[in-house]
Design a binder for these strands. Sequence first.
DNA 1: TTGACTCATCAACCCACATTGATATATACT
DNA 2: AGTATATATCAATGTGGGTTGATGAGTCAA
Lengths: 107, 107
Amino acid sequence: MTTWTSAPTGRMAKLFRALSDEKRLRIVELLRGGERCVCDLQEAIDAGQSLLSFHLKTLKEAGIVDDRREGRWAFYSLNAEAFAEVEGFVAGVRQDAESSGGSKCCG
Amino acid sequence: MTTWTSAPTGRMAKLFRALSDEKRLRIVELLRGGERCVCDLQEAIDAGQSLLSFHLKTLKEAGIVDDRREGRWAFYSLNAEAFAEVEGFVAGVRQDAESSGGSKCCG
DNA sequence: TTGACTCATCAACCCACATTGATATATACT
DNA sequence: AGTATATATCAATGTGGGTTGATGAGTCAA
């Protein structure tokens, strides 16, 4: 068990929740190449304008993406810090899982 | 953009979905210390027996935990491989996010 | 100012899923 | 056999959230 002072599971749950939708993951994939405007995302994703806006809002509220306005366009980009949070948590769990011994109860 | 031949977003979405519930994350935290029986988990989690069983099933179906029967007890443990999958994906995205330049559209 | 364009928000719908309580299954003990 | 324990499954309920279409707000061009 690596030292990991109980990462706030509420925060983690929120991050995982935002990433749990296939369309939102598709958006993340598209943003891996860099900042994109909504109009560009819309071409690449099978979703109406309203739905895309909803998913972007969901990602933004979780802190997974940042947005920026420029004229009539809105640009979205990935927030590296959020993924670092997730990576840290998951890596810790993986390490523990790899080194976990036998049963710890009901002996 | 690191080479990452489009990790199956469906699989990732399923993993994230299973991790998107706070009670399930609590279960994961408990399993970080090693294999546990359901009876042990039940004491530590604010959930009825039926609900706990449901969440364990959800985690199992996503491949996040493994189970083992021994007499009338069921033992659950973390599946390190699943977390390695998630870690690989998230780490890739984080790297891209950190090195992403400016806008790629609407020039 | 008018209209076209980009994006967000709202209202309504529907479905997946978390939750609960009851029942079923399987094992152990007497 | 019968009873107690451990866990899973089933049925029913309620709610969150994904989806859609329409409307609103802001920006640019003519």
